[in-house]
Design a protein around this nucleic acid. Sequence first.
DNA 1: TATATGCGAAACCGATCGGCTGCGCAAATT
DNA 2: AATTTGCGCAGCCGATCGGTTTCGCATATA
Lengths: 106, 106
Amino acid sequence: MRRDIFQAIADPTRRAILVLIAVQAMTPNAIAEHFDITRQSISRHLRILSECDLLAQKQEGREIYYELKIDKMKEIDIWLDQFRKITEEGFQRLDHVLFTLKNKKK
Amino acid sequence: MRRDIFQAIADPTRRAILVLIAVQAMTPNAIAEHFDITRQSISRHLRILSECDLLAQKQEGREIYYELKIDKMKEIDIWLDQFRKITEEGFQRLDHVLFTLKNKKK
DNA sequence: TATATGCGAAACCGATCGGCTGCGCAAATT
DNA sequence: AATTTGCGCAGCCGATCGGTTTCGCATATA
């Protein structure tokens, strides 16, 4: 089983879950309400994300709140750093990216 | 066929190819020398990466040089920016969220 | 011209993915 | 005590993945 962070974010549902959870910790049922798949499928996605150390759990009675371990996302950023370094000019940080994107908007 | 950039970088071989090519454009045969898989498999990876608009081709005689389209990598950075924003301006709001959640619990 | 080389497309195959249903368990509610 | 609710696990299944081999084509080279 591979289970690294890049494989974790390859699935669009998992990416959406990450964004959802980033705002506030949620239970599997609450998350499932945002998608058209079963709670069990959500549960499996949560397990995969947890195995990648992307999530933390907080038990409250019989409810489990999943929250994003934001630090783990930095690993992606670190990988991207390779390309920033290689192309000293071409690849700059997000603030510049967003700036140019906004300006492009006719 | 899904074929988005996140699925493209999910495979470790493809990530390695991207790093390799980032330094300098290379032909499929030259790339294949760095791996333990056949040139045809490399060729397929190159096709997938190309379909995601991550690569550009430059024909030279019967050789094809593949080079990285570095701009495309920014898409990952833009996605990551969601989380940077949430954690920047979101922390003070997080207290409020948890507060309302607890009150709802009735 | 005949042969070697660089390349991509297609067919095949085992492994994995991502849904699903059907459990069982523990906590909460009645 | 009985039922409902929240959850994870296991098994099933069609689709996709990522490797392979085989092949055909175009471009060099003998």
